[in-house]
């Protein structure tokens, strides 16, 4: 890759890294894991950069790699598991109730991987149903059911004890 492309790529990473890490945090549940995931996705994006950039598809490309990598991880015959770093790397939120945001990330972890990804992409990033379906590699109907079930499940998980069925 030439210097121009490298600079272009570096500019893209600088502009998007915060959003990508925030997506990855929701998918993985920890910042170190999120950074590992983003790193993997960006390394792949780098290889395909000139072609992907020409198409203007860099955001979709990197999101797709991240989501599929996160989902596939749990399906491998061998997988990596980590122990006991919960809490150490979480930055203090500048607003809101810490219990709420922490509980949300924990509750997301209770969802199946595709539901977790669907709700983040659809309702935080704001992707359309079709765009979300493309990232996940599923039909638009499946995206709708994933997001609906995810929100319902999150509601149940986050409701104060005794207030849900």
């Amino acid at each position: 890759m030439g210097r121009d492309h490298r600079d272009d790529f570096t500019g893209f990473v600088a502009a998007r890294q915060t959003q990508l890490r925030r997506i990855a945090y929701g998918l993985t549940g920890s910042w170190p894991a999120a950074d590992d995931l983003v790193q993997t996705a960006l390394a792949r994006l780098y290889v395909a950069w000139p072609k992907v950039r020409r198409k203007g598809a860099e955001d979709a490309y990197v999101r797709k790699i991240m989501v599929r990598e996160a989902i596939d991880e749990s399906r491998r015959p061998w997988r990596r598991v980590s122990v006991g770093l919960e809490g150490f790397d979480h930055p203090a939120p500048s607003q809101g109730d810490p219990a709420d945001w922490h509980d949300l990330i924990r509750a997301l972890g209770e969802l199946p991987g595709r539901q977790r990804a669907a709700v983040v992409l659809r309702h935080w990033i704001g992707l359309s149903v079709a765009e979300t379906a493309d990232v996940l590699g599923v039909s638009e109907g499946t995206v709708k059911s994933h997001t609906s079930r995810a929100l319902e499940r999150l509601h149940t998980l986050l409701a104060p004890e005794g207030t849900t069925r």
């Binding site: 490298r6 790529f9 570096t10 990473v13 600088a14 890294q17 915060t18 890490r21 925030r22 945090y25 929701g26 910042w31 999120a34 950074d35 983003v38 790193q39 960006l42 390394a43 792949r44 994006l45 780098y46 290889v47 950069w49 790397d89 930055p91 203090a92 939120p93 500048s94 607003q95 809101g96 709420d100 945001w101 922490h102 949300l104 990330i105 709700v119 983040v120 659809r122 309702h123 935080w124 997001t147 929100l151 319902e152 999150l154 509601h155 986050l158």
Partner: peptide
């Protein structure tokens, strides 16, 4: 939970990522 309330909560939960130095590392790995 509504899409709007999820978005608000997610925004708060992730709005302050720890510092990073991702760009140079990404170029190197790539």
């Amino acid at each position: 939970m509504t899409p709007e309330s999820f978005s608000t909560m997610y925004e708060a939960a992730t709005e302050t990522p720890p510092p990073t130095n991702l760009a140079p590392s990404a170029v190197k790995a790539g």
